[in-house]
Design a protein around this nucleic acid. Structure first.
Lengths: 144, 144
DNA sequence: AATATTTAAGATAAATTTGTCCTAAATAAA
DNA sequence: TTTATTTAGGACAAATTTATCTTAAATATT
């Protein structure tokens, strides 16, 4: 469904958000340990997300990553997925055709587009804050 | 969503089914041309699907692939996807955790499992015949 | 029986994704 | 100003997926 880069990116963002809720910046090492993801790899993904103002980064001692509550509430999972994996998941053909639409559909188009709409809807309605809250309250986990 | 192997496999199966509806076996070369997929690669996927009795293969002149109408009506897209891509799409965690369930869920579990159920439902309710019919009637296409 | 045609299957190659490593740049603190 | 710490980013490596190539096995036809 999502690429590994995207999975790691999402987990990292959720962890950073929970730390930010506690007034703490998260260093990439902490992020890696607490989100169960490879540090250097995740660092690159966070670099991309920083460029898009999804998360904020700071160099030097006391540096790390953080998010404002405003960011957490505004940024939707659909934004993050789109930045990392592109929008193929929202618009792409289920059978990989370069184009596929109502007027010239692939055999799965009708049924597939409904599923896709469901995914998009779900990701669009879910903010970083929504997910960070569950983790912060101990109702969900990032590692197993 | 699906791997390339799965996309090519599904397209190939749908093409073979339409040919079978016309009483014709499809050779791998025909399949490749008419489903827009790489022949040798798709041949391997069809080899796997043959092993699982999704499709029938015959060697020698007049050989090729075909499906009975009974097969087309019984075999669901979920069967094909499971054989090629495994059942991660039905049961896997959206964030890639090795385990993820109600009692110890990842932050996306609740919302993600609904989406997954939608995908599974769609694939389970769609048979090869359903899709082959649309292609056979010229309502859908395999190449663009 | 010989031949031509087709799938089967293993080896190999190319491309993409995932992951690591190392150096540079930024910056807080001593 | 020096030092230690952290992200940034390029080069590189490993793993996986996608795709090709070649030979063997099966089989219909002559």
């Amino acid at each position: 469904m999502f690429s590994k880069a995207c999975e790691h990116g999402i987990k990292a963002i959720i962890y950073i958000a929970t730390q930010s809720l506690q007034g703490q910046r998260a260093k990439i090492g902490d992020v890696a340990i607490n989100s169960g993801s490879p540090g250097a790899f995740t660092a690159k993904v966070l670099g991309t997300l920083t460029k898009y103002n999804i998360v904020n980064s700071y160099t030097g001692p006391t540096g790390g990553f953080d998010m404002s509550v405003k960011q957490m509430r505004q940024i939707r999972m659909s934004d993050i997925v789109k930045i990392i994996d592109g929008d193929n998941i929202y618009n792409g053909c289920g059978l990989g055709l370069s184009e596929c639409n109502e007027s010239k559909p692939c055999p799965m188009h009708d049924k597939f587009s409904k599923v896709r709409a469901g995914i998009k809807d779900m990701l669009t309605k879910t903010t970083v804050y929504d997910l960070a809250k569950g983790l912060h309250e101990g109702k969900t986990v990032l590692i197993r």
